[in-house]
C-alpha cells in the first residue's frame, strides 16, 4: 500500500497526542506507508521533538511529498485522531479490492471514552451472524478481532446525498487517491475533497470505525468556516453547484446555532451572518 499519512496539527500542537498517533502508525507499519507532520511555517520543533519524530519515522514537511505511484493514497489526520489497532491492514484490504476510489472512514468520537463506544457498537451488532460465528470460534473477549470480523464496505454512488456530505467533505479521515488530487487546492482542505468528489462516480465507505476522530465544526469552528469559504471557490458544474450551496448554508447556520458552545465572538458571528446573507437560497433537488 502506497499511503501518505499526513498529520495536520491543531493551532496548538498536542505533542503527547502527536507522539501517541505516530507510535500507533509505526506499530502498524506497512511497506509503502509514509507519515508526515505538516508543520505550519510559524511553528518550530525542539531538538527533542525532532529526535522522537525521527525515531518514529515521521518526516516534517509543510508541503508533503505525495506518493508517486498511480495507486497511491493520502490520508489526512489530526494529531488528536486515535488510530485503532488493525486500521492500516483494513485500509490496505479495501484499497486493494477497489483501487483509485476515495474511501470515507467510519469513526468513533475522540471526545467520548473509546471502550464505551466499542461496547455499544458490539452490543448493537450482537445478532450479527459474523459476531456469533466469532464467539463460536473463540471465547476471548478481545474486542479488536470482533471489530475486524464485522468490517465491511459499500461502494456508494449517491455522491450528492446531502446527509452524507459532511463525512465525505471533511478534510481529515478520507483516503484520497493521489492521482485525483488537484494542485489548485491544499491537500488538507474541504475544497480538495469537494473537487475530487465532484469528479467521481463513486466513493467507498468503510463501515466499521478504524479511527477515533473529531468534528471540524465542533472542535475548530473557525477553521471549518475558513474551509467552507475556500470550498466556495471551487469551480463546480451545474449539478454540483446548488448541492454545495445548500450544504454551505446549512453549515453556516449550524455554526451560528452552536455559536455559544463554539465560543464564537460577536464579530465572528456577524461575519457568519453576513456570509449567510450573501449566499443565494437554492434548492438542490437531492
Amino acid at each position: 500500500m502506497n499511503l501518505l499519512i499526513n498529520i495536520v496539527p491543531n493551532e496548538t500542537i498536542s505533542w503527547d497526542r502527536l507522539l501517541q498517533l505516530s507510535a500507533a502508525i509505526e506499530a502498524q507499519r506497512f511497506a509503502g506507508v509514509v507519515t508526515n507532520l505538516q508543520l505550519p511555517a510559524n511553528q518550530e520543533l525542539t531538538g527533542a521533538h525532532q529526535a522522537k519524530l525521527a525515531a518514529l519515522h515521521v518526516t516534517v514537511q509543510e508541503q508533503p511529498q505525495l506518493p508517486t505511484t498511480a495507486d497511491g493514497y493520502v490520508l489526512n489526520l489530526r494529531e488528536t485522531t486515535g488510530l485503532l489497532p488493525g486500521a492500516l491492514a483494513q485500509w490496505q484490504s479495501v484499497t486493494s479490492q477497489h483501487a483509485n476510489t476515495p474511501v470515507s472512514l467510519a469513526t468513533f468520537d475522540n471526545q467520548l471514552p473509546l471502550d464505551e463506544q466499542i461496547n455499544d457498537y458490539l452490543t448493537a451488532h450482537a445478532n450479527n451472524g459474523l459476531l456469533r460465528t466469532y464467539q463460536q470460534l473463540s471465547d476471548s473477549d478481545n474486542v479488536w478481532p470482533q471489530l475486524w470480523g464485522l468490517q465491511n464496505y459499500s461502494v456508494q454512488t449517491n455522491l450528492k446525498n446531502f446527509r452524507l456530505l459532511s463525512q465525505r467533505l471533511r478534510p481529515t479521515g478520507v483516503l484520497l487517491p493521489v492521482s485525483q488530487l488537484s494542485p489548485d487546492y491544499p491537500v488538507v482542505s474541504l475544497a480538495q475533497n469537494l473537487q475530487l468528489l465532484s469528479q467521481q462516480t463513486e466513493i467507498i465507505r468503510l463501515h466499521v470505525p478504524t479511527i477515533q476522530n473529531g468534528s471540524w465544526s465542533r472542535d475548530t469552528p473557525l477553521a471549518w468556516f475558513n474551509q467552507l469559504q475556500l470550498g466556495q471557490r471551487v469551480t463546480l458544474n451545474a449539478e454540483w453547484e446548488p448541492v454545495f450551496e445548500k450544504y454551505y448554508r446549512s453549515q453556516l447556520k449550524r455554526l451560528l446555532k452552536h455559536a455559544d458552545e463554539n465560543q464564537l465572538t460577536e464579530a465572528q458571528q456577524d461575519l457568519l451572518r453576513d456570509q449567510l446573507e450573501q449566499v443565494p437560497v437554492l434548492d438542490a433537488h437531492h
Binding site: 502498524q28 488493525g86 491492514a89 483494513q90 468490517q151 464496505y153 459499500s154
Partner: peptide, 12 residues
C-alpha cells in the same frame, strides 16, 4: 462487501 484481512496484514 465483506472485507477480509489481507494475508500479509500486520496486526498489533
Amino acid at each position: 462487501h465483506a472485507l477480509n484481512l489481507a494475508t500479509n496484514a500486520v496486526l498489533p
